[in-house]
Design a protein around this nucleic acid. Sequence first.
DNA 1: AGGCAAACAATATGGGTACT
DNA 2: AGTACCCATATTGTTTGCCT
Length: 328
Amino acid sequence: MNYIVFDLEWNQAADLRTRLENSLLFEIIEIGAIKLNENRDQIADFHELIRPQVFHTMNQVTGDLIHINMEQLADCRSFPEVAADFLKWCGSNYIFCTWGNLDLTELQRNMDYYHMPPVSQKTIKYYDVQKLFSIAFEDKKSRRTLQYAVDFLEIKKDVAFHRAYADAYYTAKILAQITQTKVFDNYSFDTYHLPQNKSEEIWICFEDYAKYISREFPDKSTAMTDQKVLSTKCFLCGAKTKKKIPWFTNNGKHYYTIVRCARHGMIKEKIRLRKSENDQIYVVKTMKQANPEIVQDILNKKSQIRNSRKERRHKSSREDSSSTLGLP
DNA sequence: AGGCAAACAATATGGGTACT
DNA sequence: AGTACCCATATTGTTTGCCT
């Protein structure tokens, strides 16, 4: 299995009118990539600029950032040609690696725009190296710039940042510096294509938590009544659990619950409702073992919601009564 | 019927990070 | 300039049950 570490640069509309005229939001104008073998040694590279067909003026901010101008792109090949060659170059046995979570989506959006055959019909499993960096060297949550990570690992800065090849190269260097094999359990999933049926749904168990990505649902209520979505079976052993706190939400988008597994103790579950590419609903559910503090946090959150609502009610009712009485 | 409050929903806003 | 993601809080609206 090879690692395809790639990075894209893209342009966008320079003015409002151009933005509204085009269905494509970001137009890819450069692809850079490094191929690593199983030992994460570099075995090949890929780099090509792309002649734009949608935006013919460089957005000011984008241009300042990536230092590419339209003249450089004039004689380049078009996106379908370059992208097809890039995918051919990738081979057949690989996993994509990117810095951050945007590149795979934008690649697929651009390919769809030109009606190219999709990279995959399924949800793509890949490595978000930005996330791996945080897990390997920091707090597992923070999101750092590529430059920060390069400085942190004291990687030699021999090319300028914010060009596709350079950023792919640095990302590959960072990836190669992650030695703990456990970090590589932390796959990411690009949800440009979501699971189309129950069997394609994603269930992944990490070291200390598990994640579930559902198929698409037409609306929220069908999602939130689905058996598999609401299921609170223990993610470690699959056993039935006892609900300690029923599902509750503070804003209708995030739902929380606390359950107890006889063997694995208290478990916190969280459901996030999200919009899919074609405006449907899907669910990301995470489960993790909860120590007493985490359980208390959830209890506090629940009571806080209740209290703040109660307070507001009282406040508004007092205002109502005082206003009807004509008091200040 | 009308008033009230809790609970439940949905949306809006503002803070942060990152990416081009 | 714009996007995505994450968080938390605020605001507004709807439903439900209980009271007078």
